[in-house]
Simulated scan of single mutants.
Amino acid sequence: MAKKKLKKVDDDLLKQAIEEEHRIRKAFVDKDWAEIKSSDSWVIFKVMSEFVEGFEKLAKIGPCVTIFGSARTKPTNPYYKMADDIAYQLVQHGYGVITGGGPGIMEAGNRGAHRAKGKSVGLNIFLPFEQKGNIYIDPDKLITFDYFFVRKVMFMKYSQGFIVMPGGFGTLDELTEALTLIQTKKIGRFPIVLVGKEYWKGFVDWVTKVLIGKEKNANVEDLELFSVVDTPEEAVKVIDDFYSKYLLSPNF
């Protein structure tokens, strides 16, 4: 009896192994046209719809500055208050404010713009932990995306400047995307302001000493693509000074 039970267990394990092998092999078999047409290719239309909605809604918003930063920043954090103040002052200087639409620094940016009675735009993203648009976004200026790359196009296309507050991987992604596109002249130059000298010191040191100095993977002139400041007033001044200088330039 015991031998029969052991044989049955062995047979079951063998059957499971064969089924798993077939499942793996099937996953790596080339898809035929019908499968592609019914899956991957149809994603194109979803991507197109996100581009169309973004272009139609954002084409009319006028000059805006995007504020990036961590979704984890609490209202008690000094950087939250600073982002709120920067957004408020940007509105007073004639700009609207765009954020990623979520909590933390994004909420602070929209809050400051709302408090100043200016344009408060949110480009939200569907995430596994269900990020929702914050309450300070103008109801007609909230767009929610499925695709990060579509959302980033909107940031780049419709922003007249970036204010980069302390943040995580997402903030670094958006910062380096902008620097790359400007460096390679894929988009026109606009001001990029890193807020918080102590926070960004390690990044700036690495770019200066390793990326440029040691490895020669960028030019020393690329350091001029961004500014580092410590106060809301300095951040807004960088934006104003940039457009005062470059709008008067015949090459702008």
Rank of each mutant, 00 (worst) to 15 (best):
K4L: 03
L6M: 14
A17P: 03
E19V: 01
E21C: 14
E21M: 14
R23G: 00
R25A: 11
K26W: 15
F28Q: 09
V29S: 12
W33L: 09
E35L: 10
S41Y: 07
S49D: 12
A59R: 15
I61W: 07
V65W: 11
I67P: 05
T73A: 09
T73C: 13
T73S: 08
T76I: 14
Y79W: 13
D84I: 03
D85I: 09
Y88V: 00
Q92L: 04
G102F: 03
I105A: 01
M106F: 04
A108C: 07
H114A: 09
A116L: 10
K117D: 05
K119D: 04
G122V: 03
N124G: 14
N124V: 09
F126Q: 11
L127E: 02
F129E: 04
G133R: 01
Y136M: 07
D138T: 13
P139F: 14
K141P: 01
Y147N: 07
F148A: 03
R151T: 12
F155M: 05
K157F: 07
Y158W: 07
Y158A: 05
S159P: 04
G161N: 02
I163W: 02
D173C: 09
E174G: 06
T176K: 02
E177D: 15
I182G: 08
T184H: 13
K185N: 09
K186V: 09
G196C: 07
E198S: 03
E198L: 00
K201Y: 03
V204P: 00
K209V: 08
L211P: 05
G213Q: 02
K214F: 07
A218D: 12
A218G: 06
F226R: 04
E233G: 10
E234C: 10
V236K: 02
I239F: 14
D240T: 02
L248T: 07
